[in-house]
Computed example of a mutant assay.
Amino acid sequence: MWSLIRAKKNDIKRETNTTLLPDEPEEHSAERWALIGASAKGANKISCQDSHYIKQIDGWSIMVVADGAGSCPKSRLGAKYAAQRIGTLLESLAKSYHVDLPDEKVFEAQIVLRFLKVRSELEFFATKKANANLNDYSTTVIALLVSNEGHILCANIGDGRAGFRTKEGQWQALFAPLKGEYANETHFLTSRNLCRLVQTSIVKASNVDAVVALTDGLENYAWNISHFDERSNRVIQKNEPFPDFFNPLIESLFYGSSNPNDTLNQFLTDNPIIKQEIDDRSLVVAHLGHF
């Protein structure tokens, strides 16, 4: 499952099966936002319970990743529906941000309403159509809106990671994932107390050139989560994207590949280290550059 979308700044167009050339940009060539997304099943798994959604519309890039709970029998459907439906709902939200960005409280209220709507739709389908339980469709969600100017609006429920890079090369996380009381436990879109669990953040910046979101099946390879501090003799929790993971990957995807779609898909499925990961993995990447 993968897709590629490219867009010119201030002149959004949807394109597929295009080639990003590694040539040097012309002196006056415009910068473009490019979007790539892929999901891959974990080692020895029959199907992938992750899903993703990407689209560009009216000067905004929409990015969603969803990770279905492995212990829930219909979580693959829950993740797929949540990613597609929330992505669609974000389209209408993006269209309302023509002039000014909302403040965080307004954005939080708008996002919570949309997450609740999708939860309600899943519950109706589960109980009225599928003779199932809502929790059978449990899934995490990370949703991002990225403006052509580089502003970022982020919302999430559960684990996974998201971050951005500045044009100066600095990487920063957008949120700390929501973990449960026990190891490997998290929260889901189907949670009863969803309203209190949704996290939101807004980054107002003009120097962002890359934004990423991924499910937790990739975080041990792409994120600095913790390290052992010898001085204090304890584990220090961290939340930092690995520049050595993302920088060469972005360079390879957007400047060194004649088919970025296949390159990302093959990376998630065939990389000799990552392919041993038993958890499903999704990655969406937005990059601003000269293509």
Results as ranks from 00 to 15, higher is better:
residue 192 R to I: 02
residue 274 I to Q: 07
residue 35 L to D: 06
residue 47 S to R: 11
residue 167 K to R: 04
residue 187 H to E: 03
residue 220 N to M: 12
residue 58 D to S: 15
residue 166 T to L: 00
residue 48 C to E: 10
residue 261 N to M: 14
residue 176 A to M: 08
residue 239 N to M: 08
residue 49 Q to N: 05
residue 142 I to V: 08
residue 134 L to Y: 08
residue 187 H to P: 01
residue 221 Y to G: 03
residue 42 G to R: 15
residue 50 D to E: 10
residue 103 D to Y: 05
residue 13 K to Y: 09
residue 212 V to R: 10
residue 123 E to Q: 13
residue 186 T to W: 09
residue 145 L to N: 03
residue 68 G to H: 05
residue 158 G to W: 01
residue 259 N to P: 05
residue 123 E to V: 02
residue 264 L to R: 04
residue 259 N to A: 13
residue 158 G to F: 01
residue 260 P to I: 12
residue 9 K to Y: 12
residue 133 N to R: 13
residue 140 T to F: 01
residue 283 L to T: 07
residue 164 F to L: 00
residue 235 V to L: 09
residue 54 I to V: 03
residue 266 Q to E: 10
residue 18 T to Q: 08
residue 63 M to H: 07
residue 64 V to H: 06
residue 201 S to D: 12
residue 93 L to W: 11
residue 143 A to S: 15
residue 84 Q to E: 12
residue 267 F to C: 02
residue 274 I to R: 07
residue 239 N to A: 10
residue 16 T to L: 14
residue 22 P to Q: 04
residue 143 A to G: 09
residue 213 A to C: 11
residue 30 A to E: 15
residue 268 L to N: 01
residue 100 D to N: 15
residue 139 T to Y: 08
residue 118 V to H: 07
residue 273 I to E: 15
residue 129 K to R: 15
residue 149 E to T: 12
residue 166 T to W: 00
residue 146 V to I: 11
